[in-house]
Design a binder for these strands. Structure first.
Lengths: 139, 139
DNA sequence: CCCATAATTGACGTTAACGTAAACGTTAAA
DNA sequence: TTTAACGTTTACGTTAACGTCAATTATGGG
């Protein structure tokens, strides 16, 4: 069995909290909801490894797209699946397909939002030019 | 003064609700929060026009990206701005720039999520092939 | 060993975004 | 004109996602 040589870095809760700019409470809350499962020190303090950190990143990323924690849990495959059950795997694959569809839809929508913002900005700039040109403040 | 010829279509609350698959309560709620301002019939019932409908679409789009209603209000420029105040317009423009930045960041993240989903799916498919090939059920 | 930080659990509080129910007015079709 | 379906306001309820104590324990440097 090959040794990796990398003992997997570990983080305290406040280190992770600082890195991702969330509160420690938030991170504990995600654990309550079954989204994280860090190891503990003998003193019972949470110890987060590389996987936990990655997972937290995914959670926060999902949140930024308006997914609820419950959905996020599904997306990272935490409902997991007796590995014996091929049917379950097929179900997960179907789920993934749907999510991919949603993602593409989101991409389209982002482009629309971008256009919207640009046109609003253009309108504002015209208004601004008008104000500055037409009525030059009191300079 | 030119007539458009298009009298602007109008919708009842339940028509909009059905079209966008939200409840009427939700639409009224958006109005409470100052995000919509439909006209009324003489009977005091809400009557939504083209603009209202567009705005609702924008609101729901924003929501799908995890923006709160308050932020959405800003984004569609509802904090508006004494049209006399060039400074306010500049502020709005700066706000728009930030939002555009966020949108680009979101696009990057969407691509990352897509990759994540694809790699999870690939893993599942390998597992599935293994299950089906290695232990062919009981067929 | 001591003390300042940092962490833990538990409990209750808060906020956004609606849901739900009641009591009543409006509309449109028969 | 009646009446079923639709809409209105008011008010209270609910849920997700944390915030905020408080009381207790762990950790690490001097």
């Amino acid at each position: 069995m090959p040794e990796t040589g990398h003992p997997s870095p570990s983080y305290t809760i406040s280190q992770l909290a600082a890195e991702f700019d969330v509160s420690a409470r938030t991170i504990r809350f995600y654990e309550e909801k079954g989204l994280l499962a860090p190891r503990r020190t003998r003193g019972n303090q949470r110890l987060y490894g590389r996987r936990d950190r990655t997972r937290l990143r995914l959670i926060l990323r999902g949140k930024r797209f308006g997914y609820r924690l419950e959905e996020i849990a599904e997306m990272i495959g935490l409902d997991e699946v007796d590995p014996d059950e091929a049917a379950q795997i097929r179900k997960s694959l179907a789920f993934g397909e749907r999510k991919l569809g949603e993602i593409h839809e989101r991409m389209r929508e982002l482009k629309l939002m971008e256009e919207d913002l640009r046109s609003v900005a253009a309108k504002l700039r015209r208004r601004l030019a008008q104000l500055e040109g037409g009525a030059p403040e009191d300079a």
